[in-house]
Amino acid sequence: MFDKHEIALSVKNLNVDYGDFRALENISLEIPARQITAIIGPSGCGKSTFLRCFNRMNDLVPTARVTGEVLFYGQNIYDSKVNPVEVRRHIGMVFQKPNPFPKSIYENVAYGARINGYKGNMDELVERSLRAAALWDEVKDDLKKSALALSGGQQQRLCIARAIAVEPQVILMDEPASALDPIATLKIEELMQELKKDYTIVIVTHNMQQAARVSDYTAMMMLSKEGSRAGTVIEFGPTPQIFTSPRDRRTEDYITGRFG
């Protein structure tokens, strides 16, 4: 499917259980590098759970059990010798609600680098990250100001700057624009197009138009079968194909708004 693209993440037979409850079932797919892959699907089908498998955030839920493999450039991140802390520096995450630390703008960006023992020039790193997140011009004179004084859209771009300051290869975005107004949303979407030159992006979104606008590939998730609560990927392919001629009837029903 991706003759042109290197594979950044390769998911093989992934299952996630919370105690006795199976949340994700038998997912296999490949995420191309330096492309935007969108994960869409109805509420409760496990989109966020799936996204959190890529940086082992599910480890934080005590009852969660992940089986199967997630290969990150060939290395299984669920291998017993891999520590999640290390994974998360290479696979960053931006959350649904902007969640800057209640510290200065500068500190927000510098934090990740500092705890990971960054040896270079911190001022340069902060500027570079803020520029990459298209925020530098708006905040360059207020770096000491509290991050909480920024608008929602600016806060979210700060969170993106914070994520890229630790120089990850992949950025996971969990509905990054759902709390933002349409203009701020478009800014984030534009930014994603810039970021994909350097980063592999995986985005979960409720907003199908957003997935259609920004992504190169789309994964459609749905409960695996009637009565089950386990989600799975039912169709994965290039975004134009998914939105004009999906192969699966359920994808068709969902994206044309006839689901349910």
């Binding site: 955030m57 802390v85 998360r88 995450m93 969640n99 934090y111 990971n116 994520a163």
Partner: peptide
């Protein structure tokens, strides 16, 4: 969200 933000950056 603050804990998650920190952990997601590779903090212990």
């Amino acid at each position: 969200s603050v804990r998650q933000a920190s952990l997601a950056l590779g903090a212990t």
